[in-house]
């Protein structure tokens, strides 16, 4: 039991300090061109445009697809694994943001 209590904080600690980072989509561009996160951090994508967006990453182990995101809405993704990925919008080919998780 004592050993369990010692190990538990070590397991929880990295995620206990997980942060939320907000990325705005406006003028068919992300508010940042790159961002560095810690494992467990969230990226929150706010669509401040008057058009839909569709954020995705095709790179393992950070592969995900947020789907169609309508104007005024928010969508988030949690990055658990370390790595580097280029996130893009499936609707607007020029929109991209480099995400590093370490």
């Amino acid at each position: 039991m004592k050993r369990f209590l010692v190990i538990l904080p070590l397991v929880i600690t990295p995620f206990a300090f997980a942060k939320d980072h907000i990325i705005t989509q406006k003028g068919k561009a992300f508010s940042e061109s790159e961002i560095t996160l810690a494992p467990g951090d969230n990226l929150i994508f706010k669509n401040d445009d008057d058009t839909s967006h569709n954020v995705f990453s095709a790179v393992e182990p950070m592969k995900f697809n947020l789907g169609i995101q309508k104007p005024g809405s928010e969508a988030s993704h949690k990055f658990d694994s370390a790595g580097v990925a280029e996130l893009r919008c499936a609707i607007h080919p020029k929109m991209k943001i480099k995400v590093t998780v370490k």
Binding site: A58, R88, A90
Partner: peptide
């Protein structure tokens, strides 16, 4: 060939 259309979607 548009970003993500074939490989993701």
């Amino acid at each position: 060939v548009m970003p993500g259309h074939a490989d993701m979607l």
